[in-house]
Every structure is written in structure tokens, then in C-alpha cells.
């Protein structure tokens, strides 16, 4: 026969395990750091880089703008973004891009380089059923 305190301890652990499982399977919210950069040389796209990484520390700030993408049950953000890259890049561009343009004209021959950069920004991502909710933190 167990004492009352022992039963209480076991029930607490079971409840905490169930809560942990629920939070990890059905509602996963996590912070991601995303940066984006692309280079255009002489009006031709030259190089494009999209870096996605899970944040090791929690980010602070309020969710600002929201983007909803179809995830097909997956919680891999890189795959989700690669499937919906056009929507995501359009979303990123509204957040604010740093523009750097350099042109040089030597003896009437022009060369131009334009670099558009989204500085590393923290995003909060919620993976629900088949939807990923991505919102930038500000």
C-alpha cells in the first residue's frame, strides 16, 4: 500500500510528461534566426543566400508580421521555406531590406553591383497541424 505523498509524486510526473508530449507534438513554437542576402551584378542575379538557424537563446520582442505557409505536418523549417520560397522572400522584403549599390564608370563603361540584405532577424515559428505560422519579432 502506497502512501498519499508517493501517489501525488507519481501523478505529478505523469502529468508533466503528458504536458511535455502535448507541447512538443501538437503545438511547437520555437525561435529561428534568419538572414537573407542577394547580389545583382549588371542587372543580372549573381548570388543568393538564405541562412536559417534555430536560435540557441530565446528571442525577446513582440510578433510583428505574420506569414502562414503550408507545412504538410513537417516541422523542418528549411524544407517548408524551400517549398514556398517565393512567398517567403516576398514576406522578407516587406520587413526591411538594406540596399547597397556601387557603380563605377570607367571611360564610359558602367559596372554596377547591388546587394540587398536582410540582417539576421529572429522569427517565431508555430507548427500547427499542417500550417507553419511565421512571425517576425520586433
Amino acid at each position: 500500500m502506497r502512501s498519499r505523498d508517493g501517489t501525488y509524486f507519481i501523478s505529478c510526473t505523469v502529468l508533466s510528461i503528458i504536458f511535455f508530449l502535448l507541447s512538443t507534438t501538437f503545438l511547437q513554437a520555437s525561435d529561428y534566426l534568419i538572414s537573407y542576402r542577394y547580389v545583382v551584378k549588371d542587372s543580372i542575379l549573381y548570388n543568393e543566400t538564405l541562412a536559417i538557424s534555430k536560435s540557441m537563446l530565446g528571442c525577446f520582442g513582440q510578433p510583428n508580421q505574420l506569414l502562414i505557409l503550408e507545412s504538410d505536418g513537417s516541422s523542418n523549417l528549411k524544407k517548408i521555406i524551400s517549398k514556398n520560397s517565393i512567398e517567403f522572400i516576398d514576406f522578407i522584403q516587406t520587413l526591411g531590406m538594406q540596399v547597397e549599390n556601387r557603380e563605377i564608370t570607367i571611360n564610359a563603361r558602367n559596372k554596377s553591383t547591388t546587394i540587398l540584405t536582410l540582417k539576421t532577424t529572429c522569427f517565431k515559428v508555430d507548427f500547427n497541424d499542417k500550417i507553419a505560422r511565421i512571425s517576425s519579432l520586433k
Partner: peptide, 14 residues
């Protein structure tokens, strides 16, 4: 030799 350099730097949102 004639050289003209121009550059722009800004952050554009919305």
C-alpha cells in the same frame, strides 16, 4: 582615364 564612382546605402521597408 575618366572614372565616376557612385554609391547608395539605405534601408527600405514596406
Amino acid at each position: 582615364r575618366s572614372t565616376v564612382r557612385t554609391w547608395v546605402s539605405a534601408t527600405i521597408r514596406n
